[in-house]
Amino acid sequence: MLETVLFFALALLAVTAAIGMIVHRSPVYSVLMLIITLFSIAGFYVLLNAPFVAAVHMIVYAGAIIVLFLFVVMLLDLRHESDRFTLTKFSRVLAFIAFLVFLGEAILLVKVAFIDGGLDIGLGGQVSQLGDTPSIGKLLFTAYLLPFEIASVLLLVAIIGAVILAKQNLKPSQ
């Protein structure tokens, strides 16, 4: 019961904030709306027995990525947008078609869930405490050790790339 109430509250919050994010004029408010969506998604992770992913999600997104976004938005001193959507009518129509295609997939899922009587992909059902930190850590340092190390190299490359790209002297020589 509590799970159902929590789920629908979080779902409503996530979707509303996401819509607010793409229609709001001010970039700062868009970033703040994304924080609300990310908080709701962290709530979903907790509901799905994945507390470690929820914690990492909050640390990485709210703690690092959103702060970075806010810094850039405030550094760039953007003028207030009068026309915030792309100009050509063609691209607007195309975008709306793409939106409908993806939304159609969601509606197809509704059909599968409520008319065909649920998704059947084997397994599932038994409740266990799978998503705790020790078991993920064990998996990460045994089966996924090489991808883990490659990920660290990727982050190093991203750090160096970001520093070089954002350096002052990239201006063309006048």
Partner: peptide
């Protein structure tokens, strides 16, 4: 799926690169 669709709509329609 709904969140993904909203993301697609935003990417294809907004002008601001940060958004």
């Amino acid at each position: 799926a709904i969140l993904f669709s909203i993301g697609v709509l935003g990417v294809l329609t907004r002008r601001n690169a940060i958004i």
